[in-house]
Every structure is written in C-alpha cells, then in structure tokens.
Amino acid sequence: MDRFLAISPKSQMWLFHFALALNILGMVLTDMWVPMVVGAIVTTYLSIDAMVRVRYVLPIKKAMRELEHENATLRRKVNDIEQASDY
C-alpha cells in the first residue's frame, strides 16, 4: 500500500477524488467517451483505494504499532519479575 510516497495519503485521496470529478465533467462536456470512461474507471478505483487506506488501513496500522509496543513493554516487565523471583 505504500505506492505513492511523494504526498500524504489524505492528499492522495483528495487528488484522486478531484481527478474523478474532472473525468466525469469531461464525459459530460466532450464527445471523447471511450477515454473518459476508462479514465473514470481508473480514477474511481484509485479514489476508493485511497479512501479505504485513509479511513481503515492507516488507523489499524497505528493501533497495531501501539499494541506491539505495549506487548513488548509487558514482556519486559514479566521477564524482570521472573528474574527477580529466581533469586
């Protein structure tokens, strides 16, 4: 999911939504239907992918990172207690 690293995921989402709106506007205003339909399909996919990434994937990754950190902290505490009880 780390395909576009030059701009933030939220900016990507807005960029792809804007591109989709321009594609739809182009379909309404011009007679170039085939390229516009293909462009609309591609930008729809990119818009949905970016929105899913911003709303679901990134918060889950953040939560997983926090849980892994908490798990490591608890493991260290358990190891310290086990070492103290061995003496």
Rank of each mutant, 00 (worst) to 15 (best):
R3H: 15
R3S: 14
F4A: 14
L5S: 14
I7N: 06
I7T: 10
I7E: 09
K10S: 12
S11M: 12
S11D: 14
Q12T: 11
M13A: 07
M13Q: 06
W14V: 08
W14F: 13
W14A: 09
F16I: 05
H17P: 00
A19S: 08
A19M: 07
N23L: 06
I24K: 00
L25Q: 05
L25W: 11
G26D: 06
M27G: 12
V28K: 03
V28N: 05
L29H: 02
D31H: 06
D31V: 06
M32L: 10
M32S: 07
W33A: 09
M36I: 03
V37Q: 08
A40S: 13
V42Y: 07
T43N: 08
T43H: 05
T44C: 01
Y45F: 10
S47G: 03
S47P: 01
I48W: 03
A50P: 00
M51E: 09
M51A: 13
V52L: 06
R53Q: 05
R53I: 04
V54F: 04
V54C: 08
R55D: 12
Y56T: 06
L58W: 02
K61A: 12
K62W: 02
K62S: 11
R65A: 15
L67K: 12
E70P: 01
E70M: 09
A72F: 06
A72Q: 11
D80E: 13
I81R: 03
E82L: 13
Q83R: 11
Q83L: 12
D86K: 15
D86M: 14
Y87V: 15
